[in-house]
Amino acid sequence: MRCFALACILASSALTAHATSDDDAWILLQKAAVAAHALNYQGIFVYQAGRQIKSVQITHYFNGKNEFARNVILDGTPREVFSQGGELTILSPRNEKVVIEKRRGQNMFPAILPTNLDAVKESYVLKVGEIERVAGRPTQLLYLTPTDGLRYSYRFWIDAEFGLLLKSVMLNPRQEVMESIGFNQISLLNTVDLDWFQPKIDAKKNYVIEGEADKTIADNAANASWTIKDLPAGYRKVDQMKRMVPGRSQPITHIVFSDGLASVSLFIEPLLKGIKPKSGHKLVGTTSFYAHVIDGYQIIVVGEVPEATVAQVAHAISFKK
């Protein structure tokens, strides 16, 4: 593995010593959160959720100011996801077309940990585990366990030398793996050019921009006819917007809550004539879903959290009479 200056700086600090106390564990997790953004690396990781398994090649580069990442999905449809600053560009082949989508930036593996872990500390405890080998590298295993039943637990394998998160597993309370994502192979990248930051072009296909797919409007919640109280412990509102969804003629309200790791979406829409009200709850893969109707509004809650959490979010809303 070639050594890059930044990696040396990171590695030379407390990181090289294996975590022994719980405080050390939080420091190590903090390093992992930063390392995923600050290091230059290239590797192949495998994402697995339920019966879905995909290999992904990632190249990540940070020039001290901006981050560039290219994710190429190696199995099935050859989708590519480019991340630059706060923006994602996704190229997905669909039949004889390639659709280019622009999205707001999101945290993607291995950069899935928030750099501010205060919210996480409130709802989870972190324990130091064994030294294990992942992708040919020695790693420190950390156990992140929730203090209640409103979120799942995680295991993180962190490169003992460079602090990069090499593997992450999410488990339900029965200790069954819900989602697993981890490197098979990883190397630090010694590069200054961005030759790799471009898509593989299929000259036989038409490239089209998907414009309206992810249309959102900022919503400052002024004049809202509803209030939210008694959210599940540890969850806070992190975003609110109005968005168009297919099959709806009016934008619907979308509020996002997070406990630092897990996220829940709440959708509120007036029940228009001709729209069938939905009710019930469902767990599909890692995603819980809860629908019910209050005072002529359809409430839908979706999140990678236990069912109790989506139910509690759905009932946290009340409408002003």
Binding site: A49, M241, R243
Partner: peptide, 19 residues
């Protein structure tokens, strides 16, 4: 439509990997 909206707006996304 709700699943898509959720996935495109939450802070952390792993769903780009699966079709």
């Amino acid at each position: 439509e709700y699943l898509m909206a959720h996935q495109s707006s939450v802070p952390t996304a792993s769903t780009y990997y699966i079709q």
